[in-house]
């Protein structure tokens, strides 16, 4: 059986909130290492990969591999009933029909319990190769969100060009064009506000802004976001969580 308690319900709330517009139904794969999820969006252009390691739960118990097939809209309906600071316990049998969620508020002596029905989901799993990316950019997640939002007002696509001088996000649309360039920058007072660029070779790729704007819904999970790029491979957008990560992969647009 699975029994996993999170210190703060908001971690799972934020994960589901961030991905529910991209993915409707998916399996939460539970084993002794933790809870993982991999799912493509409907158009098969983007891939979500999430891991919450067992060390992020206390206690964590999962005797055998369990796939929890969940409709994310249903899960979100239940998670909205949890306060951010509530303790959240997930429980399921070895061959479950439902997932039990328990929310505990220590300050209010309040206990809420929900069961949501599970579904059989036949999901395709993709092998993600280990990649040495040509460019890795770490920047404040709010900055990345702002850039994607601002440029999406002008265009459907953005080019991301990284070289030793900085990273340039550029777009052009019917009303005109725009760009934002970030140079490497260290904020000594707040490391999370720094922009770091690690580069082995220059890259220039084009992506659909619609997906990037969607990924940025994860911004509340982490103060920083990591963008990993190599020419002609999918972009990796990574948000670190305490004991895991939320990663989005996006296939680049090709040609003119």
């Amino acid at each position: 059986m699975l029994e996993a308690r999170l210190e703060q319900a908001q971690i799972l709330k934020k994960v589901v909130e961030a991905i529910k517009d991209l993915v409707q139904d998916c399996n939460f794969d539970c084993n002794d290492a933790g809870i993982q999820l991999q799912a493509m969006d409907n158009s098969h252009v983007a891939l979500v990969s999430m891991k919450l390691g067992s060390e992020g739960f206390s206690p964590y118990r999962c005797d055998r591999n369990i796939a929890l097939g969940i409709n994310l809209n249903s899960l979100m309906k239940v998670l909205r009933a949890a306060a951010n600071e509530d303790l959240l316990t997930l429980k399921a049998e070895d061959q479950p029909d439902s997932l039990n969620l328990l929310f505990e508020s220590s300050s209010q002596d309040r206990l809420s319990e929900y069961d949501i029905k599970l579904m059989d989901i036949d999901q395709e799993h993709l092998g993600i190769p280990d990649t040495e990316y040509a460019a890795t950019i770490t920047l404040p997640s709010a900055e990345f969100q702002r850039i994607c939002r601002d440029l999406s007002a002008l265009s459907e696509s953005v080019s991301i060009e990284a070289n030793k001088d900085g990273v340039k996000f550029a777009c052009s649309g019917d009303i005109g064009n725009g760009s934002v360039t970030l140079r490497p920058h260290t904020n000594v007072e707040d490391e999370d506000k720094s922009t770091k660029i690690e580069l082995t070779e220059p890259v220039n790729l084009t992506f659909s802004l619609k997906y990037l704007v969607n990924f940025c819904k994860a911004s509340s999970l982490s103060a920083t976001v990591r963008l990993c790029l190599s020419n002609e491979v999918p972009l990796l957008v990574e948000y670190q969580m305490g004991a895991g990560y939320l990663r989005f992969y996006l296939a680049p647009k090709i040609g003119d």
């Binding site: 493509m40 891939l47 190769p129 659909s208 647009k253 090709i254």
Partner: peptide, 14 residues
């Protein structure tokens, strides 16, 4: 206009 390939054309099915 540019083409939007799927993610499956980069990552193989396992």
């Amino acid at each position: 206009t540019s083409n939007q390939p799927t993610i499956q054309s980069f990552f193989q099915q396992r």
